[in-house]
Amino acid sequence: MLNLKKIHHIAIICSDYQKSKEFYTEILGLEILQEVYRKERDSYKLDLALQKNYCIELFSFPNPPTRVSRPEARGLRHLAFAVEDIEKEVEKLNAKGIYIEPIRVDEYSLKKFTFFEDPDGLPIELYEEE
């Protein structure tokens, strides 16, 4: 068995780098740690942190192929963020014109959750923790 310590990061390839950069930094509020343009690959790599913890690498590549994400396709299902007050966060997203599914309650944990999408349709979950 491996001795894993934690999840280090999640890598996301986007179709419109500037649009996704704005979404992850200005809407979700992730902090930019480093932004690099790799000329030989015509690719950006943006390292992002949540509360000072490195968590997402956002990549751009010329003409990346699309990936089926719904309904329930193989691969990454969604990216989830813990929040304290889901209604307050939903109001903030609504104010930015982002469609959010109705808030639901997990039948086992009895916690509230909801989903919305990034600019490329990647499902993002907000999950309320106390």
Rank of each mutant, 00 (worst) to 15 (best):
K6G: 06
H8M: 07
H9N: 07
D16L: 08
Q18K: 15
K19D: 08
K19F: 01
K21P: 04
E22H: 11
E22K: 11
E22S: 08
F23R: 09
F23A: 09
L30R: 09
I32N: 01
L33E: 15
Y37G: 07
R38D: 03
R38L: 15
K39H: 09
K39V: 07
E40S: 14
R41F: 12
R41G: 00
D42M: 12
D42C: 05
S43M: 12
Y44S: 10
D47K: 06
L50C: 12
N53G: 03
C55P: 11
I56C: 01
S60R: 03
S60P: 08
P64N: 07
P71L: 07
E72S: 10
A73G: 14
A73E: 10
H78R: 06
F81P: 11
F81N: 06
V83Q: 02
E84K: 13
D85C: 10
E87P: 00
E87A: 12
L93A: 04
L93P: 06
Y99L: 14
I100P: 02
I100Q: 00
I100K: 02
P102E: 14
P102R: 05
I103P: 01
I103A: 00
I103V: 15
Y108N: 10
S109L: 09
E117R: 10
P119L: 04
D120H: 11
P123M: 07
I124A: 08
E125R: 02
E128I: 06
